[in-house]
Computed example of a mutant assay.
Amino acid sequence: MTEASEQDLLDRWTSTLRAARAGREGPDPAPYGRNLLNRWAEPQRRYHTVDHLRAVLDRIDELTDQGGEGGELELVRLAAWFHDAVYRPDRSENEERSAALAEKALTEAGLTAHEVAEVARLVRLTITHDPSEGDINGELLCDADLAILAAEEGTYGGYTRAIREEYAFVPDDAFREGRAAVLRQLLSLPRLFHTPYGAAAWETRARRNLETELKSLTA
């Protein structure tokens, strides 16, 4: 990550946290942002990197620009920052640990109990990516996080290779079985995308990508 790219993300973090605090006093946002960026840059990551964080933030902006209404946008953006802040591919409690980190850090950073609880709820929601009907915040975050599934063929291929690299410690047969289970779980969802724009722009291509990958894993 270049110095300019890092500064851009830190500026986005600072703007988001200050907007979420709505004028309330609180500690300097910068150390929290740097800590998060250091986490996103850990060496065990291949897909869940700073690039993924930036992509999710950009997709939140895209969804908002394409007619997204309502919700607590700054809390959704904060949830994006925290949703993979703890990531170890050999562990199953990453989302829970990320949510706990959000609860601790955002309480210290000056958010209200409601705001902290909502960010943590959104982080935990990325376990299933299946928000309830009318959960505007959840729909926005989940759609942004899963937007990679609707990427063009070459980009999608890069995503799947990066996921495999993160799980390099898993033997091929076990990886194919586990990855196929993840794909079947996603394909079993009534909808992958819940916002109107996400459903219209991404659903068909995402399902095609998932089905193609599943076939290649089970051939």
Score class of each variant (00 low, 15 high):
residue 92 S to Q: 11
residue 22 A to K: 09
residue 126 T to F: 11
residue 99 A to C: 06
residue 187 L to I: 06
residue 109 A to D: 11
residue 19 A to R: 13
residue 43 P to S: 12
residue 155 T to R: 14
residue 139 E to T: 05
residue 151 A to E: 15
residue 29 P to N: 05
residue 139 E to W: 15
residue 53 L to C: 06
residue 42 E to R: 12
residue 180 A to N: 03
residue 80 A to S: 08
residue 147 A to D: 02
residue 68 G to W: 14
residue 135 D to R: 15
residue 209 N to D: 06
residue 24 R to P: 00
residue 104 K to T: 10
residue 43 P to K: 13
residue 46 R to L: 00
residue 9 L to M: 12
residue 105 A to Y: 14
residue 212 T to I: 06
residue 137 N to S: 08
residue 53 L to Q: 05
residue 88 R to V: 14
residue 185 Q to V: 00
residue 7 Q to T: 15
residue 95 E to V: 05
residue 180 A to P: 02
residue 209 N to H: 09
residue 61 D to H: 01
residue 161 R to S: 11
residue 34 R to Y: 00
residue 62 E to Q: 12
residue 73 L to F: 06
residue 64 T to K: 12
residue 213 E to K: 04
residue 51 D to G: 08
residue 173 D to Q: 12
residue 31 P to G: 02
residue 44 Q to P: 02
residue 87 Y to L: 00
residue 55 A to T: 11
residue 76 V to W: 06
residue 74 E to K: 05
residue 207 R to V: 03
residue 199 A to R: 12
residue 13 W to Q: 07
residue 62 E to F: 03
residue 94 N to D: 02
residue 44 Q to F: 02
residue 33 G to Q: 08
residue 1 M to V: 13
residue 48 H to L: 03
residue 197 Y to E: 04
residue 13 W to D: 03
residue 1 M to Q: 14
residue 78 L to Y: 11
residue 141 L to S: 02
residue 219 A to C: 08
residue 74 E to D: 15
residue 97 R to W: 08
residue 120 A to Y: 08
residue 7 Q to I: 12
residue 181 A to S: 15
residue 15 S to M: 12
residue 58 D to A: 13
residue 163 I to L: 15
residue 92 S to D: 11
residue 212 T to H: 13
residue 49 T to P: 00
residue 23 G to W: 09
residue 204 T to I: 07
residue 193 F to K: 05
residue 105 A to S: 13
residue 71 G to R: 02
residue 158 G to H: 10
residue 152 E to V: 14
residue 20 A to H: 07
residue 101 L to I: 00
residue 137 N to W: 05
residue 171 P to N: 03
